[in-house]
Simulated scan of single mutants.
Amino acid sequence: MPQTRLDLDRIHAARSVIDPVFLDTPMYRCDALGRRLGCTVSIKLETANPVRSFKGRGTELVASLLAERGRSAVVCASAGNLGQALGWSGGRRGLDVTVVASRRAPAAKLDRIRALGAELELVDGDFEMARERAATIAQRRGIRLLEDSLDIETCEGAATIGLELADKKSTFDTVLIALGGGAMATGVGYVLKTLAPGAEVICVQPMGAPAMTRSWHERRVITTESMDTIADGVAGRYPIPAVLDDLLAVADDAVLVRESSIIAGMRLLLEHAGLVVEPSAALGVAAVLEDPDRFAGRRIVTVICGSNVDLNAYHHWVHG
């Protein structure tokens, strides 16, 4: 069992806390996509839920814990999906939820955060500036700061995806996971390395936001001065040291992909799987497109992690 901050017993217990609407998401083989990519492709669909991303698995744990302890408020920084999920989970438990996001975040994500009842504060900078502002708010108000990937609940919530994959371990040999802050990659990777150690865990990140991937290869935290990618959900500049340590223990590889491959991946998921996805969710397909020989004949699973996308931008990418 890999040495990380995660605990398998807690991950199993998480399933009794998380609303069933986020659990046991569809996983199915997509032969049309597989024929196009030259390998057997299965899709793990994390968008068929009220917040259209996997983030609800983690926010359910956080919100339940806060409610049990009598806490009344929570704040987070978000690229969009975490804020929606926290708004949903916190709202159902009577928590006051504040979300700090970049003004440059997709309008569709910001609108959904507001619609779910969260207080939304916008900053002019990128996600890292939003993270700093959220920490300031938490300190000033004396409320809980939820830090995605650093807070273990976000990782162990995402790790329940791994439990569901491990139940089907005979159907795949490689799992492709979008890599941003690292909650999903470390969570799913930990479970697979524990329960299905024969499966290869490959993390995928855009070349325009490569900090965590570079850090994984260098085995030390590498920060970047800027980022430039349409995959806003995985765009960060400052890897968290504790999360990197976990990732080093559970990931077999971390690769970078070009923007053109991300867009091609979105187009293929629409054409061959009938799925409208945000750029982060197409990273796995992009990785196969960039290195088809590596995956030829393999049995892969790609986790479709989110579908909160601005439709105007989506049409421009996919049909432009």
Rank of each mutant, 00 (worst) to 15 (best):
G162E: 05
G180H: 02
I137C: 02
A166R: 09
A178S: 14
D151N: 13
G157R: 05
I152K: 07
T136I: 15
P206Q: 04
D151V: 10
M184H: 12
I137M: 04
E156H: 05
V191P: 03
L146G: 01
G208Y: 03
A138I: 08
D167Q: 15
K193V: 01
G162K: 05
L179R: 14
V204M: 07
A166P: 13
P197E: 00
L145Y: 13
G198C: 12
T174G: 08
F172Q: 05
I161E: 07
L192S: 01
G181R: 07
E147K: 14
G187A: 00
A178Q: 13
E164F: 06
T174L: 08
A199R: 11
L145N: 02
M184K: 12
R144I: 08
M207F: 12
V188S: 10
L146P: 05
T171M: 10
G182Y: 03
A138M: 12
R144S: 13
L145D: 05
G182P: 10
T194H: 06
Q205Y: 01
P197A: 04
D148S: 14
T174Q: 06
G142L: 11
L150M: 12
T186V: 15
L163C: 00
Q205M: 08
P206S: 10
G162A: 08
T154Q: 03
P206T: 09
T186H: 04
S170I: 07
M207K: 15
P206Y: 00
G189P: 06
D148Y: 12
T194V: 06
A183W: 04
G208W: 00
T194L: 07
Q139D: 15
F172T: 01
L165G: 01
T171C: 07
Y190T: 11
L146E: 02
G142V: 07
G180Q: 02
A199T: 15
A158H: 13
C155I: 04
K193A: 03
A183M: 06
I137N: 02
L165M: 08
L192I: 09
L150K: 13
R140W: 10
C203W: 00
T160S: 15
R144C: 13
Q205A: 08
L165T: 04
L165F: 00
D167H: 12
F172H: 06
A178K: 07
R141W: 09
E164S: 12
C203E: 10
V188W: 14
L176R: 00
A159Q: 08
F172K: 07
